[in-house]
């Protein structure tokens, strides 16, 4: 087997909020205040092979974007190693470091805050390819037009600024910008969430065409299970900073093993549902500021038993290529 494009081992990310000056004094005086740490990502192993589409799914705030940023090399990990083509990403320097950065592109969740409001769309898309010699001054206009067209945008709008576009148009600017540098690996963070289904279909079909023609690789972060199922070869499920299940797409949708995955799959809204009563989340939503001990899912898990409250379940193989982190799998065995 060839070296994976990206390989994460025991990767964690913590965000700490240090006490401010007043807080420190209060603490000295014996007040119960302390530094707060968010365990956004907690000991994650993840491998993505060339040409693969890996779907990353999980609740809002569980650490998907943080993991995606570390994979794309724009945020350092607090712990663990990230290897890009077998080499440690944090240690790449010079031209190799630049190549890694260029070859891995991220399409951001929040298009407005990732697009410079003072730069015209043409330059947002075309600047990097020009700097890196992917196009020439003389071919610049044609290159930009082509990138816009590909992302389903009318090139005649290229002299506009980001705020003059609709939400979905902005999302497509982000897509065009990422594709314009001809990367080999793309981290898509909720990249089609703001698009109506028809344009969504157009973009997803484009992603699939690029994969077929250029052997592109994707880490596809999405909360839309329909989209993930359609697109991914493999699906990784996260819960509160940890990977809880991982399996080939068909397998996970047919035979979800982890109770969280099962809960997730049962709640997919469907277009054939009519005016219905939505139910709130059962059980308290846990906080990454203060994650529950043992299995993070135990306060909401209908199958939780004593062991779940004290011992963290590790990912174990339950079928070929299918791993799950749940103590129930030991029980039956």
């Amino acid at each position: 087997m060839s070296t994976p494009i990206i390989e994460l081992k025991g990767v964690s990310k913590r965000f700490s909020k240090k006490l401010d000056f007043a807080g420190k004094i209060l603490q000295r005086l014996g007040a119960p205040v302390r530094d707060e740490t968010v365990h956004a990502v907690d000991g994650v192993d993840l491998t993505v092979n060339k040409g693969e589409v890996v779907g990353l799914v999980g609740e809002s705030g569980c650490g998907k974007s943080t993991l995606g940023r570390m994979v794309a090399g724009i945020m350092p990990a607090s712990d663990g190693t990230i290897r890009w083509h077998g080499k440690e990403l944090a240690e790449l320097t010079g031209s190799e470091g630049r190549r890694a950065k260029l070859q891995t592109q991220m399409i951001f969740q929040d298009p407005m805050s990732s697009l410079n409001p003072r730069i015209r769309v043409a330059d947002i898309i075309g600047e990097a390819p020009l700097v890196h010699g992917l196009t020439k001054r003389s071919e610049y206009d044609g290159y930009v037009d082509e990138q816009m067209r590909r992302a389903g945008m009318d090139p005649t709008l290229k002299r506009r600024y980001p705020h003059q576009f609709s939400g979905g148009q902005r999302q497509r600017i982000g897509i065009a910008r990422a594709l314009a540098v001809q990367p080999e690996f793309i981290v898509c963070d909720e990249s089609v969430a703001a698009l109506d289904v028809s344009i969504q279909a157009q973009i997803l079909n484009l992603f699939m065409d690029l994969r077929r023609d250029l052997n592109l690789t994707y880490l596809f972060i999405s909360h839309d299970l329909g989209v993930v199922e359609h697109l991914s070869d493999r699906v990784v499920i996260m819960y509160l900073g940890r990977v809880v299940e991982e399996a080939p797409s068909e397998e996970i949708f047919a035979r979800p093993n982890h109770p969280y995955t099962q809960a997730l799959l049962s709640e997919v809204p469907r277009i054939d549902a009519r005016k219905k009563s939505f139910a709130g989340v059962k059980g308290e939503i846990p906080s990454p500021l203060n994650p529950p001990p043992g299995c993070h899912f135990h306060p909401r898990c209908p199958f939780a038993f004593d062991r779940c409250k004290v011992e963290r379940p590790m990912l174990k193989t339950v079928a070929s290529g299918h791993r799950s982190a749940c103590h129930l799998n030991d029980k039956v065995a």
Binding site: V57, G58, E59, S60, Q109, G167, E190, A193, A194, H223, L225, A263, L264, E267, V268, P269, S277, F278, A279, G280, V281, I285
Partner: peptide, 21 residues
Amino acid sequence: ADEPTTALDVTIQAQILAEVQ
């Protein structure tokens, strides 16, 4: 409400839709 739940997973979305109802 302009696309208020686009980036939300189904469980949280259901919670918010329940509050809205």
